[in-house]
Design a binder for these strands. Structure first.
Lengths: 299, 299
DNA sequence: ATGTTCCTTTGACCTTAGTCAAAGGAACTG
DNA sequence: CAGTTCCTTTGACTAAGGTCAAAGGAACAT
């Protein structure tokens, strides 16, 4: 891993310092009106309803503390609680109309604050700012995603593959038959690898590597959750799979793609893959690629 | 003023929310170690020494609260206080070596946090992020600067003109004689205008408008503090001065520039000024420009 | 010199934020 | 169905953050 140069660290910290000075302080106190911060945040987080358990985890609060705050909001008529239908240990919280008003007011104030901040810029400059913040957010999100190797039969792996299958079933004109997916044992242990990308502990992408023949691997099922697209995550997954291939002694990797996945093809080309003739009988494939990973290896 | 489209407001708020979620929470608790936040912030703010009064204003704290916190830090051996030489009502606080260590540790932790955040990006992506954050900060700073009309003899006006004079004295090969500056009454009331740009209540730029002859104004002394350059502030000042000109019934404005101020010349051209022959006997001027502000006026 | 303003300290208080442990009811496990 | 785990509530505390008013000393204005 290349070291992070101080230039970038400094730039990042400078920006944070500036932004917190400029808005962070105002933000909380101003937006929460005269309501305590904790309550304001809780109100906001309840949103369209959530169980206390969920809220506890999301906000990282002590159970007792949360219980009391919820009761306080209830006493103010902003929140209504009820018992979960199926699991009566769980308590659900939802906003009353008054609570919704309150959150709406919070949002209006935040908007007004942002608007006041942007007002003195020209429309061009606002566009430039929006673009810059978009880029920054995209990169920070990408930086926050961790990729881990999991067993092909793990719950997260299955969840990703299910989402992947549903996704391409909708995109391939001929649909997609889930039995064409890799079997868990093909992508686990010495046979291959399965990578899952996590954003804030939620799986948002995956990729599989299996062995085609000695020294030759195949990359399959590179998928990114719709909400995590356009971040550059697919490249990172591909990168991770290639590293896995090398570790598995697979100096050459191949992959195929469906005709409709044109962005994927462009990505593979950009990552050093070259088109080759059909190497399998995958009915969904229209293009085949390969990439040599280890130098000097003679086949 | 053009309205701010919701797109930009939303983008800005989304970014803020994201960043606070991602780092804001960690930041404070993590960086302050086991020291209370208030104390950690105070320590950081004391930096190379400051009076309690200054700190009170900067941090927006209650006098009693601040007094107690300072004493607490003093008791921990992190801060030393003394009485101001000239005004013995004021109390000065400065860091002891131990306090400096503590702040150093805070900084190291903040750096480490930033570094961990950036580590998983490629060097290219880090560069892109740094650039985006730089752009965002530049624009936010610019948006936070307010331009006000002040009297030409006011303290802020004089301070800006002094800085301007010193600045160009250093840049003009032949130096600059401050008696060539506009007189206060030329740029005040009906005769003209003096604008000062404030960033967080500190003057960071200025510009003057005076009447050359009926219907013709002259823009002079457009200056931006070195730390506020490259934000686009000069343009905003110029803009403000042109508006003042129109309000003063000056449909045509002229200005001159010194040969060495090439960026300024480029800016004037970009803002619609056209070069004209010498119209004054300013010994420092090498180029003369003018711009018509009101349509249809016949001269 | 005298009244006013400014800065800091101190005492008295209050709210918010957060922790810990005990306990009770519901669901899950074998 | 017995034991365990999970979720919530309650009581008992503590620390931190923050406010208000009174008071004393220093500087400033006239």
């Amino acid at each position: 891993m290349e070291p992070v140069s101080t230039e970038h660290v400094t730039a990042f910290r400078r920006f944070n310092r500036y932004l917190t000075r400029r808005i962070g302080v105002l933000d909380d106190h101003y937006l929460g009106q005269d309501r305590p911060l904790g309550q304001a945040r809780l109100l906001y987080e309840i949103g369209d309803g959530a169980s206390l358990r969920e809220l506890r985890v999301r906000l990282g609060l002590d159970a007792g503390y949360l219980s009391r705050m919820t009761r306080a909001l209830e006493a103010q008529g902003l929140v209504r609680t009820s018992v979960h239908h199926e699991d009566s240990r769980l308590r659900l919280a939802e906003l009353t109309p008054a609570g919704r008003d309150e959150v709406g007011e919070q949002n209006r104030r935040a908007d007004a604050l942002a608007e006041r901040l942007l007002r003195d810029l020209s429309e061009d400059q606002r566009g430039e700012l929006t673009a810059a913040l978009g880029t920054a957010r995209r990169l920070l999100r990408l930086a926050g995603i961790v990729i881990e190797r999991v067993h092909g039969a793990s719950a997260d792996a299955r969840a990703c593959l299910d989402a992947y299958a549903a996704d391409i079933d909708a995109r391939f004109p001929e649909g997609f038959d889930p039995t064409a997916l890799v079997r868990p044992e093909e992508v686990s242990g010495d046979a291959g690898a399965f990578l899952v990308a996590y954003e804030e502990n939620r799986p948002v992408g995956c990729g599989a590597l299996r062995t085609l023949e000695p020294g030759v691997g195949e990359i399959r099922h590179v998928w990114v959750h719709p909400e995590a697209r356009r971040l550059g995550l697919a490249r990172r997954l591909l990168d991770g799979l290639e590293r896995q291939a090398v570790e598995h002694g697979l100096g050459l990797v191949r992959l195929d793609t469906h005709a409709v996945l044109t962005e994927a093809q462009a990505m593979y080309r950009a990552c050093g893959y070259t088109q080759i003739p059909r190497y399998d009988d995958n009915v969904y494939a229209a293009h085949w690629f390969e990439k040599r990973l280890t130098d000097g290896a003679v086949r």
